[in-house]
Write a protein that binds this DNA or RNA. Structure first.
Length: 431
RNA sequence: UCCGCGAUAGCUCAAUGGUGGAGCAUCCGGCUGUUAACCGGAGGGUUGCAGGUUCGAGUCCUGCUCGCGGAGCCA
């Protein structure tokens, strides 16, 4: 039997059809019942008149509670008053599994209650819209790289050492080898991949054990990290802006309905087109000083600083050439100023902060050895990484995009916890 | 780890130190066009936990637990 979904209803106007789904909401008059059906593709009001259906069906329509799984039968009618454009003149109603006392009613709830019921909260229209946009963003990301000659290369999740020290990583016992750590970045492995394949991207979960307690942080999140051989910092910024434009414009074009459900004002998203403004760290500090900030030259930007900087522009801004002291050991220094790293962060507008962090990597073996010593990192753990500089080293660059921050920004959400089906935060790992 | 705010019915919230209420949800009744439907009625409480002050504590004080927001760190 062919299954019909609510999203397909336009093809069946005037026909008698059956649909399976869940009871989303219910309203009634004395001799009329309105059952709102949801099936994951949309919402449909099914109208039961007392005279048109059996006594048994009318009683069932009256009795069943929110989220009862049902199969409805009836004639599809175009209905301008309906949000989806269609309505069902219902004749049949089959209960698949009856539900009562569903905890999430169509009224206000607090965040703790909703998070405790995250497995059910996912069914509500807002969450469905977010999950669909998240999926479309993921697909756009993969389409972009796949269509530009990149190879997807998965990096390991269990790793023997930290990229920048071990203090912020989750650790786990690992047989006779001592401890393993959950990855905080696939980048070093991505660099090995770029030397093999030229252009690669990794796409996987990453973990941070930092006790970060803000709207921008999760302990488990997804990151996309392209790495390209022979790309310098400027090439890297070219890639980042083309990539962001593609992702945002694709979502704007294809997810209009979902963005409307979220009541997202898309004015600023429409501006996300290349070229994106590029400013140096020094220029960014100038902006902060001019705004009256107490910011001290040489520090990394905090959340508030990022907001002040990004407010100066009508689209994401790329800030490059940070003080090397606040950046990772593997970043190449600016030949024009050894104190600066060839790093770039992309700051999203509207206070969403850093969504991309990247750099040109140090490709000189001896300089990299120096950095490892300076950072007190165990050289033996990085021997394989140093091999990449011993055998045919080339200039190369890449960046990491935080998926949840990107979803939060595009959807206009208050907090990244709504951007992932089951968020992991310092005080929550359930459901 | 630090700073700030909070915890009262299933949910969202009220309640001057003096008999703990409302809306929604649930149950009963009414309504043939509702769309967070509406109207009438009913049931529903160890006020987060443990102490203290007081004639009397949801309310004031102390400690704890949990949550929320922010800082630091970062995507």
């Amino acid at each position: 039997m062919q299954k019909i979904t609510i999203s397909d209803l336009g093809k069946y106007v005037g026909q008698e059809i059956s649909l399976q789904g869940w009871l989303y909401n219910k309203r009634s008059g004395g001799k009329i019942k309105f059952l709102v059906l949801r099936d994951g593709t949309g919402y449909l009001q099914c109208v039961y008149f007392k005279g048109n259906v059996t006594e048994d069906i009318f009683e069932t329509a009256d009795r069943i509670g929110q989220e009862t799984s049902i199969e409805v039968t009836g004639k599809v009618k175009a209905e301008p008053r309906a949000p989806g454009g269609y309505e069902l003149d219902a004749t049949g109603l089959k209960v698949i599994s009856e539900a009562h006392d569903y905890p999430i009613t169509p009224k206000d709830h607090g965040i703790e209650f909703l998070m405790d019921h995250r497995h059910l909260w996912l069914r509500s229209s807002r969450q469905v819209a977010i999950l669909k946009i998240r999926h479309r963003i993921v697909k756009a990301i993969r389409d972009f790289f796949d269509g530009n000659g990149f190879t997807l290369m998965d990096a390991p999740i269990l790793t023997p050492n930290a990229v920048e020290g071990t203090s912020t990583l989750f650790e786990t016992p690992y047989f006779d080898l001592g401890k393993a750590y959950l990855t905080q970045s696939g980048q070093l492995y991505g660099e090995a991949g770029a030397m093999a394949l030229g252009k690669i991207y990794t796409f996987g979960p990453t973990f941070r054990a930092e006790k970060s307690k803000t709207r921008r942080h999760l302990t488990e999140f997804w990151m996309i990290e392209p790495e390209v051989a022979f790309n310098d910092l400027n090439d890297n910024m070219d890639l980042a802006e083309e990539f962001l434009e593609y992702v945002v414009q694709t979502v704007l074009k294809e997810m209009e309905e979902e963005l409307k459900v979220l009541e997202r004002d898309t004015t600023k998203l429409k501006n996300v087109k290349k070229p994106l403004p590029r400013i140096t760290y020094d220029e960014a500090v100038g902006i902060l000083k001019k705004s009256g900030s107490q910011f001290e030259y040489g520090n990394d930007f905090g959340g508030g600083d990022e907001t002040i900087i990004s407010e100066q522009f009508d689209r994401p801004v790329m800030v490059h050439r940070y003080p090397a002291a606040v950046k990772a050991f593997y970043m190449k220094r600016d030949p024009g100023n050894e104190n600066l790293a060839l790093a770039v962060d992309v700051l999203a507008p509207e206070g969403y902060g850093e969504i991309i962090g990247g750099s040109q990597r140090e490709d000189d073996l001896n300089k990299l050895l120096e950095r490892i010593k300076e950072h007190n990192l165990p050289q033996e753990a990085f021997e394989w990484y140093l091999d990449l500089r011993r055998y045919g080293s080339v200039p190369h660059s890449g960046f990491g995009l935080g998926l949840e921050r990107t979803v939060g920004w595009i959807c206009g959400l208050e907090h990244v916890r709504e951007t992932i089906p089951f968020p992991r935060m310092i005080y929550r790992n359930t459901p």
